[in-house]
Design a protein around this nucleic acid. Sequence first.
RNA 1: GGGUCGUUAGCUCAGUUGGCAGAGCACCGGAUUUUUAAUCCGGUGGCCACAGGUUCGAAUCCUGUACGACCCA
Length: 509
Amino acid sequence: MLVILVNNVLNDLNVLTIIPYLILTLGFFRILFTMDERLNKLEELHKMKIDPYPYKYERTHTFAELKKGFDKLSQAEETVASCGRILAVRGHGKTVFATLADETSKMQVYLRQDKLGDGFKIFELFDIGDFIGVKGNIFKTKTGEITILVSDFAILAKSLRSLPEKWHGLKDIEIRYRKRYLDLIVNPEIREIFKKRTRLVGLIRRFFDDHGFVEMETPILQPIYGGGEANPFKTYYNALERDMYLRIADELYLKRLIVGGYEKVYEICRDFRNEGIDRFHNPEFSMIEVYQAYTDYEGIMGLVECFMEYLLDNLTDSRTMVFCDREVEFKRPFKRIKYTEALNEKLGFDILSAKGGELDQSCRTHGIDHKVLSTGAKIDKLFGELIQKHIIEPTFVIDHPKVISPLAKVHRKDDRLVERFEFIVFGTELANAFSELNDPVEQRKRFETQLAQKEEGINEIDEDFLEALEYGMPPTGGLGIGIDRLAMVLLNQPSIRDVILFPQLRREK
RNA sequence: GGGUCGUUAGCUCAGUUGGCAGAGCACCGGAUUUUUAAUCCGGUGGCCACAGGUUCGAAUCCUGUACGACCCA
């Protein structure tokens, strides 16, 4: 069809006008040439009144079902109908072996001219990558492979481009990310990873449902962004004639629900942060936030211990976890270390009473660019560099300085600290939790301090949230878990892009 | 934002000191009725990422740009 179309266009133009046209559309022509053979076959199918893109196929068995039910099906000589994509073809003149794949498995099919008659020739119009349906009986070849002896077959969708190589697969990491569908076709282990990720999210949901939590849905488009420290993506709402932000967290909305009387809520949410992309960061990422009334961070720590054990038992069948060639065991209670004690020991002075000069000096010593950072940010960088990086075993780091935790409740025994923990394993933060700040007067002060520390006063205080707190929020424990990082660690994938189907990349040239 | 490395056929990769652009798979033609990375014979396919520079001569050396990976911020 395309070939005819292009021929017509060429006939309508004289040679001189064609030349620049040819140069301009070189890319288009190159695609045409590479697809030429397949387009011819497509044309051939049309001529034979065979629809290369039919509407459906009645399948009796998936390939996995055929393999599982082989004894019964072969004994009964039952005619089966299956379908899938052609992955390999081995022609032998008057017979053909082909390997097909559906979602469940691969399957060999065997076509013989003496069985198919004139229809046998039609298979010559099929290519690797095409979807086909086959009917026939299953048997074992002399090498013992379960195979369908085909009595009838049909094209289900013609493929116009050749797939990446069958043996080496697709390795180019850029193409794997940009054209994930190719990665999924030729690298079955990648399909397995994303299936496991889906199973993981299902387990997370089941765990919290089973523990009496209710899943909620809160706004992704927010008039004021909050609940974290990050630059937002900004958009404009025409009908309301105002700027809106894609959420960086859903904390402040879930807390409104606790004010509203729910006692156990969670949301599995996609959050958006307008910041750098690297091995641990994608601008859109998945979180689960959990809030439970009448408990504190101690209660949440217990919940996290149960949660991790539940995931390991149901996802990997083992209480050990391997990530980047290191192995750890999960045994409760998890280790606890105090944030300030660990950091003070490394630094040799007390960060809570430190002078600015001491902090700056330490930053310089450890290669941290301290000039543009707030005190809190300096402390957190030092912590990341000196402590977090080296924590491999599952560990709760607890009791953070107040300056770096504007939404957490002051520690009951030390008012310079808050009741907070981060759950760290393999040097990676998997969870962050507080005894939630529910004192509206204190919360307002913290927001004001936070706003004053910002260089650009872009964001405003969420008055509606403060008003909600003023109506009263019960004591509450809150938890946030980064699902992508959790997936990385549980599935032993070194980059966040390996657990996100379509990671963000720059635009192609 | 900075540093290091990479980009060669649809895919996986070679390419020597700067001297004709290569292989395997895929594709096309031929042989082949139990193969399975089928095999055998023959063939097509390249803006060597892009733009400059050095040179008699550049995939190769130099500069810049784009995209990607890793590290740092």
